Computed example of a mutant assay.
Amino acid sequence: MKRIIITVVIIAAAFAGIMFLLNKNKAKNEEETAVVAIQNAAVAVRAEVVDLKEVNAEYITNGVFAPKQEVKLSAEASGKVIRVLVSEGSYVKAGQTLAVINGDKQTVDVSNAQAVYNNAKAEVARFESAFATGGVTKQQLDQVKLQLENARNNLKSSQIKASDVNVTASFSGVVNKRNIEPGSYVSPGNELFEIVNVSTLKLKISVDEKNISQVKLGQSIKVQSPVLPEKTFTGKVSFIAPKADASLNFPVELEIQNNASNDLRAGMYGTAYFGADQRVNLLVIPRNAFVGSVSSNQVFAIEGGKAVLKEVVSGRSFGDYIEIVSGLEQGTQVITSGQINLLNGTPVEIIK
């Protein structure tokens, strides 16, 4: 019994020693953690000074050239194609015949309609003579006149259908696609040709809300294409959207007269230059100083060693720099890196 008591006492003493050591180590760890927390209370950030910078005030935006006129010609009559008169790449004039569809049925319809019309016309002449002598009533004369009018309308309709066998160009341009060959059978609605006019093109661009006030209808704009770096074109503003899209950009269209060799082609990228190439001094900050994105209009400034969230009004974009209209003064330090770790009033330490 005495041996059991001694064993229990030894185990209890060992357990008490272990608990003492654990509590001592815990206190030491908490003390070290507190020291580290004190040392790391200031968040490391990078910063730049708000200052005047010489920038190019010219506004540049990119877009894609599109043909001013583009149409897909479809068949308006059923039948077999007997002749195709143009190839892809051919230049065609307005009203030029591009293909001919077999019009035998339409020709027969016109002949029948013409015969009915001739007969109705003769019938009206006979009834008018009879009416003059009292041989027919006014009602009978009106009835045959109505039949003549119906016959005239049917003749016009059949003549129009007969003319539909000739597929013609609606404007001058280039055949971009040809989807038929002689012997093909077509029905109304089948796409036959695609015609584009690239003598005049449209450049579709987007202008942000900060610069849309510079754009006016009829304004002449310098236009270039990266694939034709040595050539310059002039575009005129032909459309300004009255409403911005979801990105607060306004769709704008420029009309550009192509050169004699039609070097500009639909689908090419184009660049529009708004305003003269002029250097001006503006108050700017780096783009990466904004919290999240430029549209947030929020930046962290450093005041008394702390990060202070500021609301600003941003202006035009100049590459990596954004114009500041109001909200910051020259000489203020703004944080450009480390914003994700900051709250309003967080102590900060500037690192190089």
Rank of each mutant, 00 (worst) to 15 (best):
I5Q: 09
N281E: 15
Q224W: 00
V71I: 12
K222Q: 08
V84T: 09
L328K: 01
P67L: 03
E230N: 13
G89Q: 08
T234K: 09
L141H: 04
L146A: 08
V71T: 15
T332Q: 08
D320F: 01
Q224I: 15
P347F: 05
N262M: 06
F127R: 00
P182I: 07
R152V: 04
F290Q: 01
R178M: 13
N258I: 07
I324N: 03
V348C: 04
N166S: 14
Q257F: 04
L264R: 00
V252P: 03
F193R: 02
L309E: 03
F233G: 00
F65W: 03
Q339T: 15
A34R: 10
A130G: 04
N25E: 13
K121R: 15
V9M: 13
Q219D: 09
N259F: 06
V207R: 02
E30D: 11
P347S: 12
A241V: 10
V55H: 00
A289K: 00
G79A: 11
T33F: 09
G183L: 06
D320W: 00
L254C: 07
A113E: 01
L22M: 09
L52P: 00
E149M: 09
V207G: 02
K93L: 09
R287M: 12
V49T: 14
K352Y: 12
K68V: 15
R126V: 11
N154H: 06
A266G: 14
Q159Y: 00
L148M: 14
G183F: 05
K26V: 13
G267S: 12
G95T: 11
I160P: 04
E349A: 12
K161N: 15
V237Y: 01
E323V: 10
T332I: 00
I160R: 12
V312Y: 03
K68R: 13
E123C: 01
E48P: 02
K121W: 05
L217M: 14
S78V: 07
S293R: 10
G95R: 13
P251S: 11
I38G: 13
N197I: 05
N262W: 02
L98C: 03
V294A: 10
T7A: 13
F274D: 04
Y59S: 07
S78G: 11
K222F: 02
S317V: 12
G305D: 12
R178A: 08
G275A: 09
A42E: 14
Q147Y: 05
F300H: 01
G134F: 04
A125Q: 12
I340Q: 15
T168H: 06
S170Y: 03
R46P: 01
V186F: 04
A57C: 08
Q257Y: 04
S220Y: 05
I82H: 01
V196K: 05
L254R: 00
L85R: 11
G267Y: 11
K156L: 10
Q219W: 01
K68N: 11
E181H: 10
I212Q: 09
I82S: 06
A151Y: 01
K2Y: 14
M268W: 05
N258R: 07
Q257C: 02
L217K: 11
D142Y: 10
D208K: 07
L98H: 02
I221K: 01
E181M: 13
D104R: 10
K105P: 00
N25K: 14
F15Y: 07
D208M: 10
L342M: 08
Q39S: 08
K80S: 08
D51Q: 09
